[in-house]
Design a binder for these strands. Structure first.
Length: 257
DNA sequence: AAGATATGCAACCGCCGCGCC
DNA sequence: GGGCGCGGCGGTTGCATATCT
């Protein structure tokens, strides 16, 4: 008998998939991505689920352009650490490594273009050696620092470095806690609409029961979306709720139009 | 207005480290 | 100690949208 391996879905995520994923991450936490991928029936790889969550669905992610302070910090930290995107991202709460990486690439693209333009006009050779990029960034960061030194709301890379030496680096929880106290979180009504968090009694009860189930297939049956989780359209607003307790668990993630 | 080009960003791929058996 | 699976990371790609010519 030939086992035909089911083809995994790829490409852009649909709203339905997002809703599903958020529900299951809420249930099982931000771990065991393969498990979540299996029991959710999303037909995505665990990696894909994790990436979607980390880069797009995680509550507390900042949307929109990076602020000048953030940009400066990225440049400074890149000068210090190089392409350690995840490490840099940990210093910019609400920003993902992917976002920072994208910004850096766009920034470098712009830089090389400008240099090309200026070199062709001035005939002075400013050709860019890729191996010098960090140094160049450092130089630029230094310039930026000197011109924006009045900005004090943000730690400089050096300060962060010192902080990092003295204290163990931030945990994600700490970072999200910081975000939670900032204004950003106010724009994301996630917690209000989805209070079934690990700290809640409901969660503890549910998660305990769920973790006692060993068999993936059995669990999938239990969690069949039409049993435990249902999605519905609430006046044009797609919401997701745990069946039998819709008042306790529902959310509506933000989508850019 | 239309085509070309640039930009932004989501998502995939491959590699690596770690924990488990 | 080695094989395996999973999660995390950095590099890269491809598509949609914005901007330019």
């Amino acid at each position: 008998m030939v086992m035909v391996k089911e083809e995994m879905r790829k490409g852009p995520w649909t709203e339905q998939e997002d809703l599903h994923l958020v529900c299951f991450v809420r249930l099982f936490g931000e771990r065991r991505w393969d498990f979540i991928a299996k029991v959710s029936g999303l037909n995505r790889t665990g990696k894909s689920c994790r990436l979607r969550w980390v880069n797009y669905l995680h509550p507390g992610l900042k949307r929109g352009r990076m602020t000048p302070q953030e940009k400066r910090l990225v440049l400074e930290l890149h000068a210090l650490w190089g392409n350690r995107w995840s490490r840099i991202a940990r210093k910019l709460p609400g920003r993902t490594d992917n976002e920072i990486k994208n910004y850096w690439r766009a920034h470098m693209r712009k830089m090389t273009k400008e240099r090309k333009r200026s070199s062709s006009s001035s005939r002075v050779d400013h050709s860019l050696d890729l191996t010098e990029l960090p140094l160049q960034a450092a130089a630029e960061a230094h310039d930026l620092k000197s011109t924006t030194s009045a900005i004090s709301c943000c730690l400089t890379a050096e300060e962060l470095e010192k902080k990092e030496e003295g204290v163990a680096s931030y945990s994600l929880d700490q970072i999200w806690n910081e975000i939670a106290t900032s204004e950003v979180i106010n724009e994301l009504s996630f917690e209000d609409s989805c209070p079934l968090m690990p700290s809640s009694p409901t969660w503890e009860c549910c998660s305990e029961a769920v973790w006692k189930i060993d068999d993936d297939e059995e669990l999938r049956m239990l969690l069949q979306t039409d049993h435990l989780i249902s999605t519905h359209n609430d006046g044009g607003r797609e919401t997701c709720s745990l069946a039998h307790q819709p008042d306790h668990f529902s959310f509506s993630p933000m989508y850019s139009s």
